[in-house]
Simulated assay, not measured.
Amino acid sequence: MSLVFLAFGAVLLLSGCTFKDIDKRAFITSIGVDQSEMPDKTYKVMVKVAIPNGDPKTPKSEFLILSANSDSISEGLNLMKSQIDKELVYGHSSTIVIGEKLAKKNIQPLLEFFVRRPDIQMTSYLSVAKPNAYEVLNFKPIQEQVSGGVLKSYFDFSRTESPYIDQICLFDAYRRETEDGVSIVMPIIESNKKELLVDKIALFDKNKLIMELNPNESETYRLLTTGIYNESLKVKNKNTMFVMNLEKGKAKYKLKDQNKNIIVNYTIKVRAVIEEKVDGLEMIREGDITALNKQMEEKINAETSALLNKIKDKDIDPIGFGLRYLSRNSENRNLSFWNKKYSSLTFKIKSEVKIKGTGLIN
C-alpha cells in the first residue's frame, strides 16, 4: 500500500513539460530558403512568425522574420530557437518559398527534409521566389488579417482562380521528384517591394529549375493541364480586334504508337463569348463568328504546339507523358526506352472552339 501512495505522490510532483501555454508559442505561417550570402554556408533559412493582434475588429497583420545561415535546414531552424523566447510551432505553416538562385542549383535536399519533418504539413504550397525568398516573405500587403495569408490565397483556388497559377503541394512535388516519367513544376512569386506578382510558372527536372514560362505560356500550360476559366484572349478579324472571354477551356490527350514513334493526340475544347470589340461600330454578323472560331482554333493550335515542343527540347516532362506511357504499356516499362522515345515525340493538336454569342448585345 505504501508503494501505491509513493507512486501517486511521484505523479503529482511531475511537471507538465510537454505542454506549453499558447502565449509561450510562436506560430510559423511561412518558411523560406535562400542560397546563403555567406561563402562558408549553404542555406539562409527564414520563418515568418505571426504576431497576434489584440483587437479582432481591426484587421492587422504583424509579423517577425527570423533567419539563420547554416549548412542544413534543420540546423538553421534550431539556430532560430535562440532568437525568440517562445516555442516555434510549424503546424500552421502553409507555404514554403524557395529562392530563385537556390532553385537553379538543387532542391532535392529541401524536399527530402520537409517531407520527413512530421510537424510540417504535406499540403503546404511550394513556390519559387524572385528575386529571393526574403523579399517575398517580408512583403506586407495593405490589408491582411493573418500574417502569411496572402501567400496561401494565391494558391487556394477556393479563394482565387488565376489562369497563370499552377499550384503544387509538398506531397505532389516529392512525388514528382521520385516518380519516373514526370518532372516538377512550381509557380513563381515575384516581389517588386510594392506588390507581389504571380503570373509565371517554373519548370524543373528532378532537382533544379530548367526554364520559366512567360504569362502567355503559363496560361497555355494551365489549359493543357488543369484547364482555365473566365480568361481573355485577343483575336483580330480583318481590321477589328475582338476580346474573347474564355468561359471554359479543357484539354485531354492520348498516346499512340505509330511507325515506331509515339504520337500525342491532344483535343482541346474551348467555350467563349465575345466580350469586347476594340474598334469599329459595325454589327457582328454570323460570318464573323465563324471566322473568329477558325482563327481562335488556329491560334490555340499554334501556341500549344510551340509550348509542347519547347518543353520537349529541354528534356523535361511536367505534364507526365512518360508516367502515363509507362503505366499503360505492358511491353515497354523501361525508363531508358521512354527517354529515347521522348526526344522524337510528335504532337497533333485539335482544338474545338465554340463562340456562344456576343454577350448581351447582338
Rank of each mutant, 00 (worst) to 15 (best):
T42H: 10
Y174K: 13
T346Q: 15
I284Y: 02
S93H: 03
P109T: 04
R25I: 14
I300Q: 06
V235R: 03
T29F: 03
F113V: 05
V97T: 12
R271S: 15
A251Y: 05
L14F: 10
S183G: 04
T42N: 10
P318H: 04
V97D: 05
L126T: 00
L66P: 01
R175S: 07
G91Q: 07
D315N: 15
V4R: 13
Y43C: 04
I263K: 11
N334L: 08
A202F: 03
D55P: 02
D21Q: 14
N78Q: 12
N132W: 00
Y266H: 13
N53M: 06
N265G: 11
I263F: 14
Q108P: 00
K350I: 01
I96V: 12
V150H: 13
Q83H: 11
L13V: 15
A173Y: 00
E231T: 14
G16W: 07
M122L: 15
D172H: 09
L246F: 03
M186N: 03
F155P: 00
E87D: 12
S343A: 09
N329K: 01
N301V: 07
T178A: 07
Q258S: 14
S70T: 11
S330H: 14
V4N: 13
E282I: 09
I274A: 08
S61T: 08
S327H: 10
A291S: 12
L233Q: 11
L111Q: 02
K238A: 09
A26V: 11
E112T: 11
M241L: 14
R285H: 06
K104M: 07
G32W: 05
V4H: 13
L196C: 06
S218E: 10
T42Q: 11
L224R: 03
L255V: 11
A26S: 12
Q108G: 01
P318Y: 01
V150T: 08
K341Y: 06
W338Q: 04
I274K: 04
N69F: 12
E217T: 02
K194S: 12
Q295G: 14
T95Y: 07
A68L: 04
M38I: 11
T304M: 04
P109E: 01
F157T: 12
D288F: 02
Q143G: 02
L111N: 03
V264K: 03
G249S: 14
D315T: 10
K248Y: 07
G320V: 06
I319R: 05
M46Y: 02
N334S: 15
S158Y: 08
E352F: 07
K152L: 09
L102A: 05
G16D: 13
I31R: 02
